[in-house]
Amino acid sequence: MATNVAVVGAGAFGRNHLRVYRELELAGASVRLAAVVDQDQTVRDQTAATYNIPAFPSVEEMLASGISLQAASVCVPTIHHAAAAAPLLAAGTDLLIEKPIAATLEEADQINVLAAKHHRIVQVGHLERFNPAVAAARAHLNRPMFFEAHRLSVFTPRSLDVDVVLDLMIHDLDIVLSLVPSAVREVRAVGLPVLSRTVDIANVRIEFENGCIANFTASRVSTERVRKLRFFQPHQYLSLDFARQDLLLIDVTAAAGLTDAQLAAMIEKHSKPELPGEPKHPTAGMNMSKIPVAPGEPLRLELSAFLEAVRTRELPQVDGVAGRKALALALEINAAIAEHTLRTGL
């Protein structure tokens, strides 16, 4: 039997959920797009006409209609996640909640408690977990000790209810937390508002208990769009481009006797585009290879994984606990930014 699914919130994120659910339905997946919820009547009318589904102004009215529903995507603004999730969970609906899971840790805990009480699936929409390049990188993981993440976007009025840490950086926080089997030891951060009332650009340094260091830069006032993560592990350097779904691996095992300065120079040289006529691997002891990545739309992979979890009752790859963990770190970063701002008077 097909899983009846609703989308709560038909804004920028919700529109994509609607599109992918319908595409999966038309492709023969065991899912049926059953309803949409949005406060805006114009949006409701347009969505209902486009997808030929009933539209409701609230979750409560949708549930009161008696519609048969097994799952839903919660795509409303973050501050409304908990309020939208509560009645759905109580009604026995499995949820995919867009990231971050909630606005506060208390609300995240409420969602997870309700999910456990009603035996419901909660998956959090940390989309990059389903990026094919991330899946390819996991196969080469070997005690990473240094990460560098850059996530830059041009300014858009979308998601201004949260700052850049909760809007953009949280993607990379979640990825790194999933790759480093260690607790966070120290957080240092600086951030500034530029075009909005919240922090629009931030730089963060995190040290883990096992000695791993991670540097994060996020900006939503950039002139270009960048989605990259680089990490270093014993005798290897991996460079991941989320947007292009590319993964480059540089193996320097044969160069293990080099000094740190020589190794850094080698990596820097091979991080640059090759010049015409330049040898592909001019430095002895370095093996640089592009790892094969099977392309795919991350949102389609994410929603397919959610529907599979609903069907099998297996724990989602990004469950409510993982969502809370990423939120906790993001809020700790925001506290560090606030402390730095107060101390420096910026």
Score class of each variant (00 low, 15 high):
L331Y: 06
E332H: 07
F242A: 03
A328T: 02
N16F: 10
G345Q: 06
R220C: 04
A35V: 05
V8A: 02
N210T: 10
R244N: 13
Y51V: 02
Q110R: 15
R151S: 06
I67W: 07
G277A: 13
D246K: 14
T3H: 08
T341F: 02
N210C: 14
K290C: 07
R185A: 15
P295N: 09
I201S: 05
E297A: 11
V134T: 00
T3G: 04
I175R: 03
E224P: 00
N215S: 11
H140E: 13
V226T: 13
V36P: 00
E302M: 15
H119S: 15
S58E: 05
H281R: 13
P279G: 08
V164T: 06
I213C: 04
S222D: 09
S178N: 10
G345R: 09
A2L: 14
E339W: 07
P100W: 01
H171A: 00
N215I: 10
E297M: 10
T312L: 12
L327G: 05
K280D: 07
L168E: 05
A202V: 14
E106V: 14
E61G: 04
F208P: 00
T217C: 07
A149Y: 05
A137R: 06
E274W: 14
V31M: 05
L141E: 03
V113R: 15
C75K: 02
A294P: 02
L329V: 04
V134M: 08
R120F: 02
A64P: 01
K325S: 09
T253A: 12
R185G: 03
E268I: 04
A10S: 15
I291K: 11
P54V: 13
P57R: 10
A265K: 12
L258R: 14
F208D: 03
E278G: 11
A330G: 07
E339A: 15
A85C: 12
E308M: 09
A330V: 00
V187W: 03
D251W: 03
T259L: 08
